[in-house]
């Protein structure tokens, strides 16, 4: 997927700077974006495993992936890298991630009010029609009173 028209916020450049230390530790990378959505990729890595017998990723890295993909979506929707904080995030684990596959997390910011950004998204590991997680959440905007 190609990028949208030049915007004042470029998630690809931001993630290329490795600004997110926890994301770096997990191995999170930029994947794609649009006007109000952002996709990040999380490669399979043994250090992310939660179920050793089955080699399945822990749910925490997927939560972190979705938090950051939704964060990117808010910056895109607002057109700038402005401060905000996650207020809440709900995640439904639809199925386990398949071992050895890269997980793509897509966040979308569908509404911004004076104080709050509303987000939703999903994660898949190859086929967007076969999602492994679904999320809904809110962010508090910190640059406003």
């Amino acid at each position: 997927m190609s990028s949208a028209q030049p915007a004042s916020f470029d998630p690809q450049a931001l993630f290329a700077r490795r600004f997110d230390l926890h994301g770096n530790a997990l191995g999170m990378d930029y994947h794609a974006h649009g006007d109000d959505w952002c996709e990040l990729a999380l490669g399979y890595d043994a250090k992310l495993i939660g179920d050793e017998a089955r080699g399945i990723l822990a749910s925490g890295p997927i939560l972190a992936l979705m938090d950051m993909a939704c964060s990117g979506a808010v910056w895109l929707k607002r057109g700038a890298f402005l401060p905000h904080a996650t207020l809440d995030l709900r995640i439904d684990y639809l199925r386990p991630a398949s071992p050895h596959r890269t997980v793509i997390g897509r966040g979308e910011c569908y509404r911004v009010t004076r104080s709050i950004a509303f987000v939703r998204g999903h994660a898949h590991d190859g086929d967007p029609d076969d999602p492994l997680a679904h999320v809904a959440g809110t962010f508090m905007l910190l640059d406003r009173k």
């Binding site: 926890h22 925490g60 890295p61 972190a64 996650t86």
Partner: peptide, 11 residues
């Protein structure tokens, strides 16, 4: 990171 806090809470 919020993701790390979430992961900790789940664990």
């Amino acid at each position: 990171h919020g993701g790390a806090i979430g992961g900790l809470l789940e664990m």
